[in-house]
Design a protein around this nucleic acid. Structure first.
Length: 137
DNA sequence: GCCAACGTTGGC
DNA sequence: GCCAACGTTGGC
């Protein structure tokens, strides 16, 4: 199983909205970046991801799961853009802020820290464990 | 195929 | 609100 990180501005799409979608999940649409799209194309059902609030909060707030494989993004007719569906699994007991991630030497190579502009990122298993630990899981 | 101009993201 | 980093576009 692979691990990922999904960024969203809470003003646009928040963790609470994701939770409200329940087990059905929701399209992770609107991504217009090739790297991010390629990451989504590589995802499999059941892969886990962090849900990160950018701009407001700047923290990992919860864990999601891929509930549908990559398919055309319904918000555009442009065939270049695909997306997966994700559903909320559980919140982190304690959100992990970007500041904390930056302060932890084990996360120095994390895309969240090194490549702030990428909106859908791969996360290594080691990084996954560290964030979970910091988040109180 | 290069690169300048432009647009967007996201931290501060 | 600013600006740095980065990605994309389009002229040549």
């Amino acid at each position: 199983m692979a691990y990922w990180l999904f960024k969203s501005e809470p003003d646009t799409w928040s963790w609470d909205q994701q939770v409200a979608k329940g087990a059905a999940g929701e399209e992770w649409n609107g991504v217009r970046n090739y790297q991010a799209r390629n990451n989504m194309r590589a995802m499999k059902i059941g892969d886990r991801g962090f849900f990160y609030h950018s701009n407001v909060g700047k923290e990992v707030v919860g864990i999601v799961e891929v509930s549908a494989l990559s398919h055309p993004d319904s918000t555009t007719d442009d065939p270049r853009w695909d997306c997966v569906d994700i559903r909320a699994v559980k919140p982190l007991p304690r959100p992990v802020t970007l500041e904390e991630a930056k302060a932890d030497p084990r996360l120095a190579e994390m895309a969240l820290v090194k490549n702030t502009r990428l909106s859908v990122q791969p996360v290594t298993e080691a990084e996954w464990r560290v964030i979970c630990e910091l988040g109180g899981l």
